[in-house]
Design a protein around this nucleic acid. Structure first.
Lengths: 333, 333
DNA sequence: ACGGATGTTGCACTCGCTTGCAAAAAGAGG
DNA sequence: CCTCTTTTTGCAAGCGAGTGCAACATCCGT
């Protein structure tokens, strides 16, 4: 359809009166070219608007410079900020992010990875969904690096970045106790993502540890609207919880808003809330939510670092600790 | 560094006992292959885990399937949702998004476009910043399609998608008047993006049209925190405005929160607010902001459509009308 | 059985680039 | 000035695919 007419190394070579190899070497760091030749090549390249064809280069070098980002619900604040951080770090490492949206189904993560293979991506970073083992094996076998973020299922040869969700949950529990709360609840989505379940599990475990009952309610996706529903369910119980740990900040925002506007409860006086992620909105004055900060930048850094390291068969676990950011949604602090 | 060992068409051919061309044809829609050959090829491909190398294919076809998305502050709600919509539409058109972050400087948009050329992207979509004319010319000359969203400066050969910002601003003004407001203000960022300036201009023009003064205040980036500052400046004036049109929703959120919490003003009783973008947060019950909805999905659709159309030299303007979404931040409605 | 139409297949060239190798040029040392 | 070493340079062979062309096979009608 389109007539793309990019200028090629041959044309630059002709104009500069040198061989095609000379042009190639000029644009290959560390190759042997005399200063004079380089000058003439660069001049010709500039005049013609030449840019090395990375596709062809990747073909030869067997290294495309492309890294595949596999994400669903990428407009969600936490995801968006992670994408941003990763893309920044990738660019610093002279790589470039290919974005693949997997909103449709779970199978589409597999499709995405196949696409990554087709484009000979140097690596894939999975932010959501969990790929089939057969596919990840194919990736690793093909020499493609694989990073799984917050997926928590083992895959040979991959880097798995996870947070200490359970410990964080315990910490939240203790914070609630210090604030004098008596009735504890966990507000979760019902998608069952491992990291969300780990938070739930950790919170319940803390309840058992301290001999306190914990109510668990699950509903919908990890979005604001689910938080609304969760609030309605939790706050209409005969013993109304006065401490709710939300699986993530979006839920917490929906829950807080509903608690305040629909149930006329004061946060933190009548109800303490803790969230997870530390999305930007939690710092807005309508929320001032106490929450656990995902170390987004460090996650991105770690992921990108892994891409440039020699491949190991075993894979690697990387666990990070989320920091508890104290704001106003829990008494005391 | 990494030893990538992808399986090639040659290996598949060998295993299936056919020529390499047969393999190629099997994966080329519309090519002539017998059912039997196709079957054997597909079988061998499956067994070996073969996937066509899109880079090599792109090299031959002179069509990479890559589309470059050039964005800054991509974790901002509006940007994120636009990115999501575009990536979805691209995937439907069997293309794939390369994400380039231009947070650093304005010059980096040019760098990004050069990168796009290097990767022989079929097109580039610019969501932020404005590239040099020389660079866009190079893109168009190279046969690369170019889409500029909300940029509002003319570039030959490109598709320029814009909203009717001025008309929207006028509509906001009228809504304020209907609500009985008496003192009007426009809260803007000071980055001077054309679309933001158009909204300001449209609002001021409406003021002149109706013979009413309009206060304009500009500060910072188009973010929540700037909204806070703008509120502090606007709401401490001797004649306090009771109608504020914000250049975008993030500003509006910051401004509303500050008006309520710091100045103890009731929205919409003491102060009416209108925003722009219709980001998700505006529907949260803490805000219920009346705002103009960017037709994100239609923008994405239009952009992607353009990519598959034959190239014209002239370029094309596409103006869309944002819908006013009535919520609770303006009386009446 | 034969001529012709139709459908498949493989050869070989091409896309734009990198790189090993050997020839040519430049520099060093006597 | 000649020889030996070090750069620099061009040639040509890839990388993994697509495709025009000609050869071949298949099938049909007569």
């Amino acid at each position: 359809m389109s007539q793309k007419i990019f200028v090629s190394a041959k044309e630059v070579a002709d104009r500069a009166g040198v061989s095609r190899s000379a042009v190639s070497r000029t644009f290959t760091p560390g190759a042997s070219v005399s200063a004079e030749t380089r000058r003439r090549v660069l001049e010709a390249a500039e005049a013609l608007g030449y840019h090395v064809n990375h596709l062809a280069r990747g073909l030869m070098r067997n290294e495309s410079g492309l890294v595949c980002l596999i994400v669903s619900e990428m407009d969600t604040p936490y995801r968006a900020s992670l994408i941003r951080a990763i893309s920044r770090h990738l660019q610093n490492a002279s790589k470039i992010a290919m974005l693949i949206n997997t909103d449709r189904s779970d199978r589409s993560v597999d499709e995405a990875l196949k696409l990554a293979i087709s484009y000979r991506a140097d690596a894939s970073i999975v932010l959501s969904g969990m790929p089939e083992k057969s596919i990840t094996d194919l990736c690793v076998k093909s020499g493609q690096r694989l990073v799984l973020i917050n997926r928590d299922e083992e895959r040979a040869g991959a880097l798995m970045i996870n947070l200490r969700d359970q410990e964080a949950a315990r910490q939240a529990f203790i914070a609630f106790q210090r604030a004098g709360c008596r009735s504890f609840a966990f507000a979760n989505s019902d998608v069952g993502t491992p990291s969300l379940m780990a938070r739930e599990e950790g919170f319940c475990a803390a309840g058992r540890e301290f001999g306190v009952d914990v109510i668990v309610e699950r509903f919908g996706a990890t979005r604001y609207q689910s938080g609304v529903v969760l609030a309605q369910r939790l706050l209409t119980r005969e013993v109304r919880p006065d401490a709710i740990f939300c699986a993530n900040d979006l839920l917490a925002c929906g829950l807080m808003d509903t608690a305040r506007h629909q149930f006329k409860l004061a946060v933190p006086d009548d109800l303490c809330v803790v969230g997870f992620d530390d999305i930007e909105q939690t710092s807005w004055s309508s929320y001032q939510l106490t929450t656990f900060a995902q170390p987004v930048d460090r996650i991105a850094e770690e992921a990108v670092l892994w891409l440039s390291q020699p491949m190991t068969d075993s894979g690697r676990f990387c666990r990070m600790t989320p920091d508890l950011v104290w704001r106003e949604s829990v008494r005391g602090g």
